[in-house]
């Protein structure tokens, strides 16, 4: 049983790393946001695994809230992307250089 926990945790860490690297290296804002969602998915997996390992429901509650907040975040984020696209015709994060050092 414990061995499986470690597998799930390893998967979670791998997913989190993939998401973090993607969020830094990708250029399309939507892909960046998807990478952030992968990170949140990894977090959820970690919470469920720990909840099961600790025999407590706190972790599962947390997952519910993380999913709800992620949905709210997606709504706001996509609205901002649409505004940006209307204004600039692109959502490439490298083209946002109105303000410089």
């Amino acid at each position: 049983m414990v061995a499986y926990h470690n597998l799930y945790l390893a998967l979670s860490v791998v997913l989190f790393t993939i998401g973090a690297i993607g969020a830094i290296t990708r250029r399309n804002a939507i892909v960046v946001f998807m990478c952030i969602e992968i990170m949140l998915g990894a977090v959820n997996l970690a919470f469920i695994t720990f909840g099961r390992a600790n025999q407590s429901v706190d972790g599962i509650f947390m997952v519910m809230f993380v999913m709800a907040v992620a949905a709210a975040e997606a709504a706001v984020g996509l609205a901002i992307f649409i505004l940006m696209y209307r204004k600039r015709g692109t959502i490439n994060v490298e083209s946002f250089n109105l303000m410089k050092w």
Binding site: L9, F16, G19, A20, I36, M39, L40, A42, V43, A46, F47, T49, F50, A53, N54, D58, G59, M62, V66, E73
Partner: peptide, 13 residues
Amino acid sequence: SGFLLFGFALVYG
């Protein structure tokens, strides 16, 4: 937030 949450998860674990 992703980093913060993963930190929370590890502390919880």
